[in-house]
């Protein structure tokens, strides 16, 4: 912003000179040809969905405990995904993006997990992803309870926490329902915009969790 402030007369002369120079340059450079429209093939960047191994892929593991752990580890690729982790923060502030940086603007979970009474999640997040691009949304947009925080915990710790009645606030049946059928969880596979979705599909994920339960729900160390 600082322009040297010489005596005024110099300024005006400089400006006129400057204008003249531009004029000359403009005339010299004038015959600039600009491209005309032409047909180009659409270069769509396809949405890359990381695959999730089906339950059958684990049939070869004979030891039931090892099989259970392997199933959970595969499901863990979803649990550990930023689309899921971002709403299971350790603090009152959710995170955002694949880098899982603090949510901008600063927001707080509030008494019901749907935002501070004076700045609700619904101030910005609506019932659906908006214009498919910018602001994600879901009718149940909500933070996980702080007792259900996953960030900063290993997969094994997360698993123990899921089954700790003091911390999970959820029965095993409810847990399966949450993972396999909950619409807000389902958002992780349809996050909109350029956000990479969670691996596989919600059905595959649900099947892994169900199979894991059937194998006695062992967790990794």
């Amino acid at each position: 912003m600082k322009l040297r402030r010489p005596r005024l007369s110099c300024l005006s002369i400089a400006m006129i000179l400057f204008a003249l120079i531009i004029l000359i340059v403009a005339i010299l450079l004038r015959p600039l040809t600009l491209p005309k429209p032409e047909a180009l093939s659409a270069a769509f960047a396809p949405v890359v969905v990381a695959p999730l191994k089906p339950v059958s892929a684990f049939n070869a593991i004979v030891d039931p405990a090892a099989r259970s752990v392997a199933l959970f580890q595969e499901a863990g690729r979803v649990i550990r995904h930023p689309r899921c982790m971002n709403c299971h923060p350790r603090t009152d502030r959710p995170t955002q993006t694949d880098a899982m940086r603090p949510h901008m603007p600063a927001v707080a979970r509030g008494p019901d997990g749907a935002g501070d009474p004076h700045l609700r999640c619904a101030t910005c997040h609506n019932d659906a992803n908006f214009t498919g691009r910018d602001v994600p949304g879901n009718p149940q947009w909500l933070l996980a309870l702080i007792e259900q925080a996953w960030q900063g915990r290993s997969l094994g710790e997360t698993c123990r926490q899921l089954f700790d009645p003091a911390r999970s606030y959820i029965t095993r049946a409810e847990l399966l329902e949450h993972m396999a059928n909950d619409a807000l969880v389902g958002w992780a596979w349809h996050p909109g915009g350029d956000r990479p979705p969670a691996p596989g599909t919600q059905a595959q994920f649900g099947a892994l969790i169900a199979a894991w339960r059937e194998t006695d729900a062992r967790w990794p160390a």
Partner: peptide, 8 residues
């Protein structure tokens, strides 16, 4: 600018 397609 090299090329562009304005049909869409």
């Amino acid at each position: 600018l090299k090329r562009f397609d304005d049909r869409d």
